[in-house]
Simulated scan of single mutants.
Amino acid sequence: MDPVSVGLLAALAGGAGGEVGRQAWAGLSALVRRPVRRDGGGRIPAASSSGEGELVRLAENPADQGRAQALSTVLAVRAALDEDFRSGLLAWQEQARLVRTGDGTVTNNVSGGAQHGPVVQGRDFTNLTFTSPPVRLDLPAADAAEPEQ
């Protein structure tokens, strides 16, 4: 199972994703708060964290990447040790993919009035000049000979 994205956890804790994000955070909270089975049959050791403390600490300071990483780690450990928790976490991750958190997305804004011609988007503008006047191909050259009449 892939670990839960630290960026996703931090974004959800901070309220990203609107109502869908709030529902995803509530779903994770409910999953983490499920009772941890600590029986002798190889379930969660008594020393392991349920994740509840990490969840609360991240909610207190969503910008703290260390807290998000701690929650992600606890979720992975608990999922490795508890099959029921793992299946619940997998189902939660499928639903959380619908949340748009801005993690890894690109937003393009074109501004400054009317745009005539192509808009250049990207990161590598090597060998391009943006300060030269545009070349007008639809006008005859100024030094072209006048047509004879």
Rank of each mutant, 00 (worst) to 15 (best):
M1P: 08
M1Y: 09
P3V: 15
V4D: 01
V4A: 04
S5W: 05
V6K: 13
G7H: 12
L8F: 10
L8H: 01
L8V: 05
A10F: 03
A10K: 00
A11V: 07
A11I: 07
A11Q: 01
A16T: 02
G17Y: 03
V20G: 14
G21E: 03
Q23A: 08
A24E: 00
W25Y: 06
G27E: 11
G27A: 11
L28R: 00
S29T: 14
S29F: 04
A30K: 14
A30H: 10
L31P: 00
V32K: 00
V32H: 00
R33N: 11
R33F: 05
R34D: 08
R34G: 09
P35F: 07
P35V: 05
R37L: 11
G40I: 03
G41E: 06
G41A: 10
G42A: 05
R43A: 12
I44H: 14
I44N: 12
P45W: 12
P45Y: 14
S48K: 10
S49N: 10
S49Y: 02
E52C: 09
G53Q: 11
G53P: 05
E54I: 04
E54G: 03
E54Y: 03
L55G: 00
R57C: 01
L58N: 02
L58A: 02
L58K: 00
A59V: 01
A59Q: 11
E60H: 02
P62D: 05
P62H: 04
A63Q: 08
D64E: 09
D64T: 07
G66P: 01
G66W: 08
R67Q: 04
R67S: 06
R67M: 04
A68W: 00
A68I: 06
A70E: 04
S72M: 06
S72Y: 08
T73M: 09
V74F: 03
R78L: 01
R78V: 01
A80H: 12
D82P: 03
D82G: 04
D84M: 05
F85T: 01
R86T: 00
R86I: 00
G88I: 02
A91F: 06
A91E: 13
E94V: 05
Q95P: 01
A96V: 01
G102R: 05
D103P: 06
D103H: 12
T107C: 10
N108L: 15
N108G: 13
N108P: 09
N109W: 09
N109T: 13
N109S: 11
V110T: 15
S111N: 09
G112T: 06
G113T: 11
G113F: 07
Q115D: 09
H116L: 14
H116I: 15
G117K: 14
G117F: 08
P118M: 07
P118A: 13
P118L: 08
P118H: 09
V119H: 09
V119N: 13
V120S: 14
V120R: 15
V120D: 13
Q121A: 15
Q121T: 10
G122L: 06
R123D: 15
R123W: 14
D124R: 15
T126W: 13
T126A: 15
N127P: 11
T129F: 14
F130V: 06
T131M: 07
S132N: 08
V135K: 12
L137W: 12
L137C: 10
L137Q: 11
D138S: 10
D138I: 10
P140V: 07
P140W: 08
A141R: 15
A142N: 12
A144V: 13
A144T: 11
P147Q: 06
E148K: 07
